[in-house]
Simulated scan of single mutants.
Amino acid sequence: MNTSTTSIPFSLFRGGTSKGVFMPSDRFPADRTALVPMLLEIFGSPDPRQIDGMGGGDKLTSKAALMGTPTVPNADIDYLFAQVGIRHAEVDFNLNCGNLTAAAAAYAVREGYVQAHGDVATVRIHNVNTKRIIVAKVPLRDGAVLETGTLMIGGVPGTGAAIDLDFHLATGAITGALLPLGEATSRIEVPGHGPLNVSVVDGPNLIVLVCAEDLGMTGVETPDDIDNNAQLSGVMQRVREAVAVRTGLSDYWYSRAAPSTPMLVAVQSPRAYRAYTTGEQIEANDVDLICRQYSTSATSKALAATVSAAVGMACRIPGTLAAQHVRPDQTGPIRLGHPSGTISVDAAAQQDGATTRIITATIERTARLLARGELFLKNPPLRSPHG
């Protein structure tokens, strides 16, 4: 890239309950140390309003995706995800965003990385962060991405066309093992709290499951209820820290002000609550498992797609806290209740002796292209791009 170039083409997509800025990777440095300040400038961080950039002041809208030619076999496109800090001048690459993976699939079709023939395009997405492949099925009409449809997503107004995302090839994304602690449920010591039962599952993202009642929760708290409870959020953070240390992530954890990984999910058996965004009554019969997700020092208003897939996997692994709390005799897709509604995961596992192998972990998301244009940088990069 010419160092005098100050503009970068972008596409703004909503993917599931997230929103991200998609940009071609060949316009950026390969060195992530050089990449970080560019992304901070693009998003207007650090600033709680991100007023001088593309960020929306919420972790669900402070996301970037760098897209490019695949660098591994059996993939159609490379997708590097970046969680851009809002209050802190840092960018986290140690995770994937499943919601934006739906948008990444739509981007791949729109930009010609895969051919748009028939009713469905299969897109094999290489998530560069986790070095895993996610297989997406993108609906088509007349050779173009179909965005209109009947799928409703909790936390997103209206409906859209379903994009299937299969994460079963993405297990062990962070640690390399589906069960990093070696057991479905482990008892760990949490500083300032004492011993606690946890299930640590590494699917497309690393999650730590905790019984809501063990944290003094009902399980149906709103994000505000959790974030405004310093004692509760403090315990959640210490649980995450303890698991980070146990899974070999100490260097990552202590180098960041707001580490994303691992993500804590408090689980509870089905019960009724009101949706955080709409006030709609969600009955106990509408869900198979209640979940509340906490990471980056805040509670998510909706369950992340990769976290949903990981929780779905956990529901099919005997002995995990999710399997213990999911609706008894549940069959078919697992309906997970999060603050803004529900998300379903079609998950299945197979036992090979003492080893559990995930054979299906599919969710449905919608995506929509919101805008296209040019981003203008005040401080052009000084290093050469990759490619």
Rank of each mutant, 00 (worst) to 15 (best):
T3I: 05
T5F: 08
F13P: 03
S18V: 10
P24A: 03
D26Y: 15
R27H: 14
A30N: 15
R32K: 12
R32Y: 12
P37S: 11
P37H: 03
M38E: 15
L40R: 07
E41S: 13
G44A: 11
D52G: 13
M54C: 04
T61D: 08
K63R: 13
A64Y: 09
A64H: 13
A64E: 10
G68W: 01
P70A: 08
T71K: 11
T71N: 08
P73V: 00
A75G: 06
I77F: 07
I77C: 04
V84G: 07
D92I: 11
G98H: 00
L100Q: 12
G112L: 12
G112V: 10
Y113G: 01
V114Q: 07
V123Y: 00
V128M: 10
R141S: 12
A144M: 07
A144K: 15
M152N: 12
G155C: 10
P157T: 02
A162E: 01
A177M: 15
A184H: 08
T185A: 14
T185V: 12
I188W: 03
N197M: 09
N197E: 14
V201G: 13
N205S: 04
L215A: 02
M217F: 13
P223G: 10
D224T: 09
N228Q: 15
N229S: 14
N229C: 13
N229T: 10
M236K: 06
V239S: 01
R240V: 14
V243I: 11
L249Y: 05
D251R: 14
W253N: 12
P270F: 04
R271K: 15
A275R: 01
T277D: 15
T277H: 09
E280P: 00
A284R: 08
A284I: 02
L289C: 06
Q293H: 05
T296R: 11
S297D: 13
T299G: 01
K301L: 00
L303G: 08
S308M: 07
G319M: 02
Q324D: 08
T331S: 13
A348E: 09
D352Q: 14
R368M: 07
L370R: 08
A371Y: 09
L375Y: 11
